[in-house]
Design a protein around this nucleic acid. Structure first.
Lengths: 189, 189, 189, 189
DNA sequence: ACTAGCGGGACGACCCGTTTGT
DNA sequence: ACAAACGGGTCGTCCCGCTAGT
C-alpha cells in the first residue's frame, strides 16, 4: 500500500517535494510556511515530519532534487560538438530566463536566505556549483580550449549574471548581452 | 537640529537605519525581526514606528540609503580616464567581494526575498540598476566605445555575476575570471 | 466525529466559542484578547486560528451562535395563545434582565463596538433583528392584532429599551415600566 | 498664555475635547487611541496629559460635557405646555436619530465599553440618567399626569429603545413606532 | 502509511497609554 | 510643541510534536 494508494495519485513525499519546489521558487523559502505546503500538497502534518526531519531538511531536499533534475536535463543535450553543447546550454538558460515564471536561479535565491556558508543547504548549493564548474571545464577541454579552468570560471560568472539579470532587467537586452559575452569568452569558432 | 540632544549620541533614526543595514545585509531581511533591530539600536518600539511606517518601509529606506552611499562612493573615483574609472570600479568590487564580511550584493539579496516586482522595494532596486546601467553607458561613451549600450548590459551582467560568485565560490578564482572577462568585454586598450 | 476523542472533553471549537461567549458578553469584545480566550479555553493558539480565520470571525460566530440559541429558546415557549407567548417572551427578558449577570443585550453591545454597518458582525446583528421583528409580527397577526407591522416595531422598541435599562437602572422599576408599556402597546386583552 | 495663543484659535483643552467627542462617538472609545486624538486636535502629547490625567479621564470629561450640552439644549425648548415640551423632546431625538451621522446614544455606547458599574464613567452615565428621569417626572407632574414616577420610567424605556433602534433599523419605521408608543404612554391629550 | 486535529511556545509586526527631556 | 523612551499588549504565524483513527 506504499506508493499508489489511489490510482494515479503520487506518493506523499513526491507531492510534498513538488509543492515545496513550486512555492519555494516562486515566493522564497522563508515566505512559505510548512502549513501551507502540507495544505497544498494535501498531506497530513505527521506525514510531512515522517518524510522530512524538519523544514530545513525539506529545503535541502528541494536543492538536491533540483540539482538532480538539472543534471538530467543537461544530459539530454547530447548531440553536437562540445562548443555547440555549451552554446545550447546557455541558450536554454536564456529561454528559461525570458519566460514569464522566471524568478531567478533557485540556488542563488536560496543562498540569499541562508547566509551561513556552513549550513547544509549552502553546502548543497556549493556542491551543485562544483559540478557545474566541472561540466564547463570538461566541455572546454573537449572543445580544445587553451584555458579551460579559467574560462570555466568566466562561464560560471556569466551564468550567475544572466540568472540575476533576467529576473531584474529587460529580458531582451539581457539575451543580447549574454550572447555577446559568451562569444567573447569562448572566442572565435 | 535634535540630532545631538545627547552628547555624541546619534539620532534614533540614524541608529535604526545603521543597525538595520548591518543586520539585513549580514543575515537577510526576513531573518531579522524589528524587535532585534530596536534592541540593538537601543531605541523604543514606538520611536521605530514613529520614523518608519512599517518594517517594509525600513527595508525600503535601507535600499534607498545604500544606493545613495554607492553613488557617493563611486563619485569619489574621479581622476583618470573613463576606461580607467571603469576598471577601478570593478577592481573595487573585487576587493569588496574578497573581504571577509562579503555576503553578496544587497540589491540582489533583497530582490530574492521580495518576489513581487511591483513591490516598492523591488522598484527601488530597479531604480538603482537603471542608474548603474546609465553610469556604465556614459563611461563607455566617454571612453569612445563603439557599442556603449550593449556593452553596458554586458558590464551589468559581469557585475551581477561577480556579486554572486564572490559570495559562493573561491574569491581568488573569481577575481581572475572577472579581470579576464572585463578585459574581454572592454576590448584592447 | 472527532468530537469525543478525549473522554468527556468537548471539542476545541466548542470550548472556544463558549469561552468567547462568556467573556465577550461580560467584558466586551475589544476588552478581551484572543490570548485570554485560548488560555481559558485551554486551547493552543494554532488551534484557534485553525477554527477561526480571525478574531472578528470568532465575534461573528459568537453573534450567529447566540442568535441560534435565542431562536431555539423562544421555540420552547410553545403552549398558550399568541398574546400569552408574547407576554411570556417579555417576562423572560425581564427575568433575565433582573439577574445578577445581566450586562445588556449582546447584539446591542456588539453593535456599539462595531460602528460600521457594513461589517459582517453588524450584518449578523441586523439579520437577527429582522427575525425578531418578524416573530413579533407573526405573533401579533396570530393574535388578531389590527396593526401587526407597526406594533412589531413598537415591541422591538420596548425590547431594546428594556435591554438597556435593565443594565443601567434599577431592575425593579424597569420591570414595572416594561409591564405597563407592554400592556399599553398590546391593548386590553 | 493660557487660552488665546493665536487669535481665534480655541484653547487646546477645547480642541481635545471636541476631537475626542467626534471620534469617540463615531468610532467608539477603545477604537480611538490618544495618538490619533492629539494628532487631529493638533496638540502635543504633553499638553494632553497636562489637561487630562489619563485617557479614561478624557472619556469621563466627554460624558460629563455631553451631559451638559444636552441639559442646555433641552433648556432651550422652553415655550409651550409640559406635555408639548415632552413631545418636542422626543421629536428632536427622532430628528437626530434619522440623521446620517447618528451612531446611537453616546451614553449607552460608552456603557457598553465600560462593563464595571462602579467605574467613574459609568457613574457619570448613571448621573445623567437620573437627571433625565427627574426631568421626565417633573414635566409629567407639571402636566398633571396621575402616575409621573412610573411614566417617567416608561419614557426612559422609550428613549433607550429609540436610541438603539434608530441606529440599527430603518429610521422611518422607528419614527412611527416612537410616535405611537409616546402617544400610548402619555395617554390622550 | 497516511489522515485529522490539537497542544505548545516562541516569535512575527504593530500599537497602546504614559512619562521625560529639550 | 517635538522627539524619544518605556514596557506591555494587540492579533496573528512560525515550526514542531503528539495522539487517535483509518
Amino acid at each position: 500500500v506504499t506508493a499508489e494508494t489511489l490510482a494515479g495519485r503520487r506518493p506523499a513525499r513526491t507531492r510534498l517535494l513538488e509543492t515545496a519546489t513550486r512555492l519555494f521558487y516562486a515566493e522564497g523559502v522563508h515566505a512559505v510556511g510548512v502549513d501551507r505546503i502540507i495544505a497544498e500538497a494535501a498531506v497530513a502534518k505527521a506525514t510531512f515530519y515522517h518524510h522530512f526531519a524538519s523544514k530545513d531538511d525539506l529545503v535541502l531536499a528541494y536543492v538536491v532534487e533540483h540539482s538532480s533534475w538539472q543534471r538530467a536535463a543537461i544530459a539530454t543535450i547530447e548531440d553536437a560538438s562540445p562548443r555547440a553543447r555549451l552554446e545550447k546550454i546557455f541558450a536554454a538558460m536564456c529561454d528559461l530566463g525570458a519566460g514569464p515564471a522566471y524568478r531567478g536561479c533557485p540556488y542563488i535565491n536560496v543562498a540569499a536566505e541562508y547566509p551561513d556558508p556552513a549550513h547544509p543547504v549552502r553546502q548543497a548549493v556549493a556542491e551543485h556549483r562544483r559540478w557545474l564548474r566541472d561540466l564547463y571545464r570538461d566541455l572546454l577541454v573537449a572543445a580544445g580550449h587553451p584555458e579551460p579552468e579559467l574560462t570555466a570560471g568566466m562561464l560560471l560568472l556569466l551564468r550567475d549574471g544572466l540568472s540575476v539579470s533576467f529576473d531584474l532587467d529587460d529580458p531582451d537586452g539581457v539575451r543580447t548581452a549574454v550572447r555577446e559575452t559568451l562569444a567573447s569568452v569562448l572566442g572565435p569558432r
